[in-house]
Design a protein around this nucleic acid. Structure first.
Length: 549
RNA sequence: GCGCCCAUAGCUCAGCUGGAUAGAGCGUCUGUCUACGGAACAGAAGGCCGGGGGUUCGAAUCCCUCUGGGCGCACCA
């Protein structure tokens, strides 16, 4: 019995009680699923619900009386062995071992599908993240969004959503000229101009350009710059894509801002928004009246000099997403961009969309290193490439994915550089490796999965492990709904802990020359079910599940 | 000045949107140890959940306020 099945059954009992007139409630007040949770205290049964406390007031009765009526019906649920009323009106439910244990077999049979749901079926999502400017390598500041955004995309897909992961390349602005100028200067052995890009990588890019265009230094500045700009951009973009690939992050679409300009999408966007009645002219500039939709001030789209603003490109880009059929556009931005939320939402509203439903801006706090913010001047910029080579992809991804985006994160570079066991990723990965090792040993000792008797999984540690495996799908669904993949990571740590305790208490393989029994065979099912859940969960975080460590 | 985010164990952080005695990892201390790989397990110490009010059966969680941090307020990109 899974917690989902139990919660559905409880809801059915509630509806029956209402229909029978035992409880006075309107039908709409009865939830379709009654949340059950795992009590911290083992004496409080396997599952507990506070539904009586929540609904008794509406029902015009007191919680304990409500609980008493409901518990009489809950006892008749197949697989429920006891129902107790505790404290102010908690219902503590105990499930018999056979009903709980059946889950082990179900998980193994579901395989990679276990944990996937259809809770977000029908959602067509555009998930934009990273979108780092192509003027330099990815660094630790981008790493959080890469790890988080990719995990969110995976969790959404696991919940049935259709997700396109997208990277917006800001390849149009004046920054690209600054970028080209910087490379040009380094090519000629000159210091980069004021406001240019410092850093060794600029010189390295210069070398790249030089190998492709050996005579580049002979050209005049005017002739050389466009060539440099194109070649350096290409090389830098390749570097970014390679790094992301090493990090296990795959984008479905790399979207070029320049192509928006070239296709006339900016003018088109202005015209469309004007049609909607939200564009006005003032002081020679063209404005979008974003204040109609909660922005602090109206935004310029076309400057008085005729040049479009970055904001205009944003609007055109939004319309592109809309035209491509995405009902939900998710933006993952750093906290330094939180001022964009209102104007992005206003764009959606001006385009005739519902800013509540069709656009979602997720803001993540910036990563700091030893309390200092990251800056080129402070010299504490750490490239993603370096992080991966120091720690490995798995440790980096896991340690960033196990925290919610809105928690400020402080990293210690010394700790980062040493490959330490302090990272819980090893705890989880080890649990997986250990379960695989256990299976290998069991098979070698003649244990197979030819028999399964769920009632034999009656040890306290088995009860605990089964309950955590059982709540895994709802954790994934919750993670998708809230865009919080860290919930999956935390739950994996809980499962790993329960597995290690079970491992210590219950052997799978027979000891010495003992005969193989159904206890061994049934435990192998549970062992393999745990491997499966850990592997499925780690995959959602983009972390590997090793057979050996 | 206005706005958004944050404050929980010595450190890094969870806390399932209001539930039972606030948790984990690391660090410190003590055990398990002829072992299906110990990267493990059991236990101890460590907390006025930043301060103060409020809401109710019940608050780390919701509301108000103060304090202390981070970030943002362009015809830049």
């Amino acid at each position: 019995m899974t917690p989902e099945e139990l919660s559905l059954a409880i809801s059915a009992c509630l509806k029956d009680a209402v229909a029978a007139g035992e409880i006075e409630l309107s039908a709409s007040a009865v939830p379709d699923e009654v949340r059950v949770e795992r009590p911290k205290n083992r004496e409080h049964g396997d599952w507990a619900t506070n539904i009586a406390l929540q609904l008794s007031k509406q029902a015009g009765t007191n919680p304990r009386e409500f609980a008493t009526i409901l518990s009489a019906r809950l006892k008749s649920i197949d697989g429920v062995s006891a129902v107790d009323i505790a404290g102010p009106g908690f219902l503590n439910i105990t499930v018999d071992a056979a009903a709980a244990g059946a889950l082990a077999k179900a998980i193994v049979e579901a395989g990679r599908e276990y944990g996937t749901t259809t809770t977000l079926a029908g959602h067509v999502v555009n998930m934009e993240f990273v979108s780092a400017n192509p003027t330099g390598p990815l660094h630790i500041g981008h790493t959080r969004w890469a790890a988080l955004g990719d995990a969110i995309a995976r969790v959404l897909r696991a919940s049935g959503a259709e997700v396109t992961a997208e990277y917006y390349i800001n390849d149009a602005g004046s920054q690209m000229n600054v970028f080209a100028n910087s490379v040009y200067s380094r090519l000629h052995g000159q210091p980069v101009p004021d406001g240019g890009y410092p850093g060794q990588y600029i010189a390295d890019l210069g070398h790249d350009v030089l190998t492709q265009h050996p005579d580049i230094r002979e050209l005049t500045e005017v002739a050389a710059l466009p060539v440099i700009r194109a070649a350096a951009y290409k090389a830098q973009m390749k570097d970014i894509k390679d790094t992301l690939a090493d990090f296990g992050v795959a984008f479905d679409v790399y979207f070029s801002e320049q192509e928006l300009h070239d296709a006339g999408a900016i003018e088109n966007a202005v015209a469309r928004l004007r049609e909607q009645g939200h564009v006005f002219d003032d002081g020679g500039a063209v404005w979008l009246r974003t204040t109609d939709f909660g922005d602090d001030k109206d935004r310029v789209m076309i400057r008085a000099n005729g040049e479009p603003t970055y904001f205009a490109a944003d609007a055109a880009y939004y319309l592109s997403k809309k035209d491509r059929g995405f009902t939900e556009k998710i933006y993952l931005l750093g906290a330094d961009h939180h001022g964009y939320i209102n104007r992005l939402k206003a764009i959606a509203a001006c385009a005739g969309d519902d800013p509540e439903a069709n656009i979602e801006v997720l803001i993540g706090q910036l990563v700091s290193v030893n309390g200092a913010k990251l800056s080129k001047r402070a010299g504490n910029i750490i490239e993603l490439k370096d992080l991966i080579s120091w720690l490995g992809k798995d440790a980096v991804r896991y340690s960033l994915a196990r925290f919610p985006a809105d928690s400020p994160l402080t990293l210690d570079p010394d700790l980062l550089k040493k490959h330490s066991n302090e990272n819980p990723v090893f705890y989880v990965q080890y649990a997986h490796a250990r379960s695989r090792g256990t299976a290998r040993n069991a098979v070698a000792a003649g244990v197979d999965r030819s028999a399964f008797d769920a009632s034999l999984l009656d040890h306290a540690t088995e009860n605990e492990l089964l309950s955590y495996l059982g709540s895994y799908p709802s954790i994934v669904a919750k993670a998708a709904e809230l865009r919080e993949p860290h919930r999956v990571a935390r739950h994996l740590e809980v499962i790993a802990g329960a597995y290690h305790r079970w491992y210590d208490a219950c052997r799978v393989a027979p000891q010495g020359d003992e005969a193989v029994t159904d206890v061994n065979r049934t435990r192998l099912w549970l062992n393999d079910a745990t491997s499966q859940v850990l592997a499925n969960g780690l995959d959602l975080l983009g972390v590997s599940a090793p057979e050996r460590m």
